[in-house]
Simulated scan of single mutants.
Amino acid sequence: MGDDDIAALFDVDVEISVVLGTHNIRVGNLLRIGRGAEIYLDRRISEPVDVFANDRLVARGEVCIVGEKVGVTITEMVKADRF
């Protein structure tokens, strides 16, 4: 694969999502949640967050604050399973 082949990938859109944790809740309870309500997640604050690219786990990282925005510092790349 040459440089031109790799350069073609630079314009491909990828959806990135970061999972801080999960919580199971019934729809009825979800509908009753109001502003300021707390939902407790299944992870501790010190645990790394999962980073997904197009719904595939690709990395883990730490949450960071940059100005008024929240970001993620990648601390570990996750090896893809080969088929």
Rank of each mutant, 00 (worst) to 15 (best):
G34A: 11
G67Y: 01
V14I: 12
V27T: 01
N24R: 03
R56V: 09
D81Y: 15
T75G: 04
L31E: 11
L30K: 00
P48S: 07
G36C: 12
D13S: 00
D50V: 10
V27E: 10
I65H: 04
R82A: 09
S46T: 13
R56S: 09
D42Y: 10
A7D: 08
V12G: 02
T73M: 10
V66K: 02
D42T: 03
L57G: 10
Y40T: 07
R43Q: 10
G34H: 10
V49T: 09
Y40G: 03
V12T: 03
L20S: 04
P48D: 09
P48C: 05
N24V: 07
L41G: 05
R26T: 11
E38Q: 15
A8H: 06
H23W: 09
A59G: 08
R56I: 09
R44T: 07
L30Y: 10
A7T: 12
D55F: 08
A8W: 00
N29L: 14
D13V: 00
N29W: 08
L9N: 05
S17P: 00
R82I: 06
L20T: 04
L57N: 07
N54E: 11
G67F: 11
V63S: 05
E15C: 08
R44V: 02
F83Y: 10
R60Q: 15
I39Q: 01
D81W: 14
R82M: 08
I16K: 00
I16Y: 03
F10K: 05
L41M: 15
R32S: 14
G67M: 07
A8C: 04
H23A: 15
G34C: 07
V19S: 07
L30V: 06
A53V: 11
R60A: 14
R43L: 07
I74G: 06
S46A: 12
F10Y: 08
T22E: 12
E68H: 02
I39C: 06
E68L: 07
E38K: 15
G21I: 06
F83S: 12
T73C: 08
A80K: 10
K79R: 15
M77V: 14
V51G: 02
L31S: 01
G36W: 03
N54Y: 14
E76I: 06
H23E: 11
K69R: 09
A80R: 09
D42G: 13
M1K: 14
I6E: 13
I74L: 15
P48K: 01
V66M: 04
T73S: 11
K79W: 08
T73L: 08
L20I: 03
V27D: 03
V72F: 01
I6M: 14
E68F: 10
I25K: 02
L30S: 04
A53R: 02
K69Y: 10
D13E: 11
L20M: 03
L57A: 08
L9G: 05
G36Y: 02
R32M: 13
G34M: 03
S46K: 15
N54K: 13
V70D: 07
D42I: 11
V51H: 00
D81P: 15
S17H: 02
R82P: 06
I25T: 09
R44N: 01
M1W: 08
G21M: 03
S46Q: 15
V49E: 09
T22N: 04
